[in-house]
Design a protein around this nucleic acid. Structure first.
Lengths: 335, 335
DNA sequence: CTGAAAGCGCTAACAA
DNA sequence: TTGTTAGCGCTTTCAG
């Protein structure tokens, strides 16, 4: 309760009877400090509960190592497994690297203050490409996740969603399905587009027809999946398999199908995308395409830090491969 | 790509041919600047794309207005509606107040650097009471959400979970149920404990028996609800109504029950807690106890800001009331 | 209404 | 190994 001013570096120096430089050295773990002084300083720091002032450090150092994370603010994003994994992954990596994480939810076009961070991670870019460009023009290292902006010399770590979509389709086709539908992700996102693209490509290659009513646009949310699924199952010729662009949607699709009396996978196969652990339990373990979201986020932070620290040079591009995880929600079509 | 140094205040001053003080004044909207200079400075700022350096401002001002948000790091928290709403609410409020949000996931007892923020919001305190105490001892304004720490003179905004639990039980009892079970929240959390407490109290008051096998401990996750529900429905005398301490759990409970052939609400009533919008769609609209999470988070930020700015005095205590939302998942028991 | 100058707390040459 | 001394970019008295 005492309104005592926080201890500053010279309080510590005075108590330890050394210069502030020495204190600064022990804070920054510069090795050239005698054991004796080291001990004295540490004692003083502990006694005074001293913590260096980050703003002052930044100012003096002329650099900033905090990581900015900007999340697109479109409705529903926070209810997606995707967003949560990214936040968790980035948060976790920052905790470990002892870096501050400054969080921005970008609702529209508000400028982001790149001044409070050393680098920024964009969790996908949807309508905010301008922000990325601005930040880059400003000399702030940027890293974009889950989006492969080919016409922008920016660092990114992404997943090969085209391959992922194709992988899902391929698996279903090999199982013998001919009537395969898809509930897409938000088609504003590159991931959504790419998964659909890969899916379509593969069906075309295998010469399997894809009637337009078999392509329903979702937005990754359970709700959109429910709506899509109801349409799909009401079709005169319903599909025997469906590829949902997220596990959340796949799970909801399964619920809807079961409510309508379908048996999974006997009368309907469902494959998802994500590898959401929640999809392992439930009535039937979900077959899905795994994308390493958490890893992607962690890697984004580490790479960005390395760049900010000057240990790596931009642009760094990483594209991770998705992976088929076979569980129990798909089988060959009954006939 | 030009590695040009960012423009600083005296670049602006030089270009506008005024002193840096004047520039500082227009940045801070001090009214005593002539229209003419004002315009010149603004022109220069725009031309140079100047943005004030936040660290320097903080240092000079001797204060920091960023808001810290610390989330307990226990497994699963990120998959809860609760966490997401808090993040959204806090994020949203910070966006509006133009305050930086620095985000901490506290995994265990790591100290948090209260130096980079002006105040910190604890999204519940579970095992990290020490952190709160430290921050307070350090003179950093704190605000705890969703927890009413009676032995700590800290600011908080919470929900009356005891009343909420009682409300759910009361509704079920009034409907005529005699065999009422509950799937609790994580009992490490105060919210989990309180909801259970309110629930038990009310049943006791109404003289309705609550056998121990009707109390299953969950952790707010869908998975824990599935496990609990399976046990519940396998009982020789299963309940006719279930109170789940979160909507996610209630939804999963409904799924499990439907898989086992129950009809909701005809043969089993289920009531949740949260008012998660996802629970409106699905096979049956969920009756629930609403808690204003988003509002709570927003209010926490606003109040904290006011305290940091010296406009309000600690401690401020807010307890919001939960509210019964009747939809379709409960009815009188059939007999 | 405007500007000069003194720091804010810390780091980083540069000397010693 | 240690200390001295400039700043880092900005705010804020305090005189003009």
């Amino acid at each position: 309760m005492p309104e005592k001013r926080k201890a500053s570096i010279d309080d510590v120096a005075r108590r330890a009877k050394v210069s502030i430089t020495t204190v600064s050295r022990v804070i920054n773990k510069v090795p050239t400090v005698s054991k004796k002084n080291q001990a004295k300083v540490e004692e003083a720091i502990a006694a005074l509960k001293y913590k260096p002032d980050i703003s002052a450090q930044r100012l003096a150092r002329g650099s900033n190592t905090a990581v900015g994370l900007v999340m697109p603010g479109y409705p529903g994003i926070f209810y997606s497994f995707y967003a949560i994994e990214i936040i968790r992954g980035v948060g976790h990596a920052c905790e470990i690297l002892k870096q501050d994480l400054v969080f921005h939810i970008t609702s529209g076009y508000n400028e982001l203050n790149t001044n409070s961070v050393g680098g920024v991670i964009f969790a996908d870019i949807i309508e905010n490409r301008k922000q990325v460009e601005n930040a880059m023009a400003f000399g702030v290292p940027c890293m974009v996740i889950n989006n492969i902006p080919e016409d922008l010399a920016v660092n990114y770590v992404g997943v090969n969603n085209i391959a992922g979509g194709a992988m899902a389709a391929d698996y279903l086709v090999n199982l013998g399905h001919q009537r395969i539908a898809t509930i897409t992700g938000n088609l504003q996102t590159q991931a959504g587009q790419h998964r659909l693209e890969g899916f379509k490509n593969l069906l075309a290659k295998k010469k399997i027809a894809l009637p337009p009513e078999y392509v329903l646009e979702g937005d990754y949310s359970r709700r959109s999946a429910r709506i899509a699924m109801e349409k799909l199952l009401a079709l005169p010729v319903p599909p025997t398999a469906v590829f949902a662009a997220s596990d959340d949607m796949a799970l909801e699709a399964i619920s809807v199908a079961m409510e309508k009396g379908f048996k999974i996978p006997q009368t309907l196969s469902v494959i998802g995308f994500d590898d959401n652990p929640a999809a392992i339990f439930g009535p039937v373990a979900l077959t899905t395409i795994k994308q390493p979201l958490f890893t992607m986020a962690e890697q984004a932070v580490k790479t960005l830090s390395a760049i900010v620290a000057g240990k790596k040079k931009s642009p760094i591009h990483v594209i991770l491969a998705p992976q088929l995880i076979v569980r129990d929600s798909c089988s060959s079509p009954s006939r």
